[in-house]
Design a protein around this nucleic acid. Sequence first.
DNA 1: ACTGAAATGGCGCGACC
DNA 2: GGTCGCGCCATTTCAGT
Lengths: 160, 160
Amino acid sequence: MPKSQIDQIDRKILTRLQKDGRIANNDLAEAVGLSPSPCLRRVKALEESGLIRTYVALVDPAMVELPVNVFVSVTLEKQVEERLDSFEAAIRQRPEVLECYLMTGEADYLLRVVVPDLAAYEQFLKTHLTRIAGVASIKSSFALKQVRYETALPLHHLAV
Amino acid sequence: MPKSQIDQIDRKILTRLQKDGRIANNDLAEAVGLSPSPCLRRVKALEESGLIRTYVALVDPAMVELPVNVFVSVTLEKQVEERLDSFEAAIRQRPEVLECYLMTGEADYLLRVVVPDLAAYEQFLKTHLTRIAGVASIKSSFALKQVRYETALPLHHLAV
DNA sequence: ACTGAAATGGCGCGACC
DNA sequence: GGTCGCGCCATTTCAGT
């Protein structure tokens, strides 16, 4: 489903829903200059195409005792395809790993891990990360502060 | 508002809403073993306490022509408080910077930037990032693949 | 004080123009 | 894309424990 299907109104809908996923369809319709029914039809189409993946509630990390963000660079022993898959499968098991990227260059992984404190991170390292087969080296970088965290993708580049 | 206020049911509510932010209150109530009225009251309390920050729609990056993730390490010239604030303010202006963390160690920043292609990233570098006052050095690392991306925080550590 | 049940007003969501 | 209408859900009120 290429971008050619996305017009100005769809872009407005997406921008609005990325800010407020619980907006009432009536209000959304008014905001984008449509009547409720065709607006809802567009939203459903965006959902069914997979363009809108899901709706979620965002929780404040500090208020649930999860103030520590750690970025972990992981290097694997060999770059065999099989190793990558098994590493990724293992990573997907761990709920404290919120993000994981396969990186270029040294061809390792970058993880963002969220934990209550340093002790919990040490536990994660010892009990889980170091036990994954094929892990050669691990480098941890700690965040002092989360300056910005957005889930809304910028859509300005999408042509009309 | 410490965690002592959060009981088992609240945890279930949060876990559920982090997976499906648009679930009907009736269904949520049934899922957590409550009747609709007290369930909704708890949700409202969690919202007003700020523990639930907001509800959002998550959009598929590839389907809106944003397949490129870049992690950018930024070092500032001097670690004056004022410089940090002005850098952070500048970063907040740029919608392609989805995440920004103040890091320990070399005490620089780590950014996650999302762009349509390498040309757009080059444009971002030249037009915006390098023009921010106080930026000493920039190191860009590109992601080949987003292996995992979660917004749901793990709540298993919260005691009953 | 917090929970569960009933009533009402508004909205989501389909059929049709 | 807009209009109409039904059914369901969110929300308030009231009673119970």
